[in-house]
């Protein structure tokens, strides 16, 4: 857990339009440790998603470098799994066809991989729903199917771009706790973007607060919660929860005032 897997140095990015340049990210540097759960919070529109897109190599930064140190010493860029805000399960595919979409695209649909997907479906309670259409599943189940679609490619780093924000509050509490438990159990490194401060505190090992645009890293808050039990909402009942929440709230309130 101590060695870094990803190091970002001086990442810079601007959007360009005919009316001018809009700087989105300014000198972002941080490290992600192997197996860590990192949360990014910041005022809306501050460039959090841009940062994830850059880490996922969907966009090229205008300046700065990303380096990686794979724990096994290999030299490939870490395999990235990306979970979007909506599950985007395709209605014209069954759940099974949806979760194997990535494998199908990468032409890795081998019997061993199919076996692995079936195991994931069984582990996360979707095996009996594998021939159903996405519309026949509840919001929480759909989000779990989206997670399996991401995990099917065996990513080394998971990027989560507000993956629970489309769910209603009740579902959101259970689904976010549920999905984070799955990710922790798999021992994967994860970076979560969220607007929900209590979600960030209850899930993450460390929270990075981004400033308003152009975004820089404003604060870094390591989270240590004393959990009474292993129930889904245990983290939210931890004694330190409130003070972390207030600390985050004040950091962000400063940013809003600065706007």
């Amino acid at each position: 857990m101590s060695e870094p897997i990803l190091t970002l140095k001086g990442i810079r990015y601007s959007y360009h339009s005919l009316t001018g340049e809009i700087p989105a990210l300014k000198d972002i540097s941080f490290q992600v440790k192997n197996g860590e759960f990192l949360a990014l919070v910041g005022p809306s529109g501050c460039g959090k998603s841009t940062l994830l897109n850059i880490i996922a190599q969907l966009m090229e930064p205008e300046g700065g470098t990303i380096s990686f140190q794979n724990p096994d010493g290999s030299i490939h860029y870490p395999r990235i799994g990306y979970m979007l805000q909506h599950d985007h399960l395709f209605e014209w595919r069954s759940i099974y066809q949806n979760v194997t979409l990535g494998l199908e695209i990468q032409k890795k649909l081998t019997p061993e991989q199919k076996e692995r997907v079936n195991r994931l479906l069984q582990d996360y309670g979707l095996y009996s729903f594998r021939h159903k259409r996405p519309s026949e599943l509840s919001g929480g189940m759909r989000q779990r199917a989206a997670l399996i679609r991401t995990l099917a490619l065996d990513p080394e780093i998971l990027l989560l771009d507000e993956p629970f924000s489309a769910l209603d509050y009740q579902t959101r509490l259970t689904v976010s706790a549920d999905i984070c438990r799955i990710i922790r159990k798999s021992g994967k490194t994860a970076i979560l973007i969220t607007h929900d401060l209590s979600e960030a505190v209850s899930i993450a090992d460390r929270i990075l607060v981004l400033s308003a645009r152009p975004a820089t890293i404003k604060a870094e808050i390591p989270i240590h919660l004393t959990l009474a039990d292993d129930s889904l909402l245990a983290a939210r009942k931890a004694p330190e929860f409130g003070s972390y929440f207030n600390q985050l709230w004040e950091e962000l309130a400063d940013e809003k005032a600065a706007l």
Partner: peptide
Amino acid sequence: DEEKIKLIYTLGGNKIDVYRKV
């Protein structure tokens, strides 16, 4: 939906995959 197209790219697909799958 642009996001559906982005999904294909996050799964390692290219423009042809976007056309065929989405």
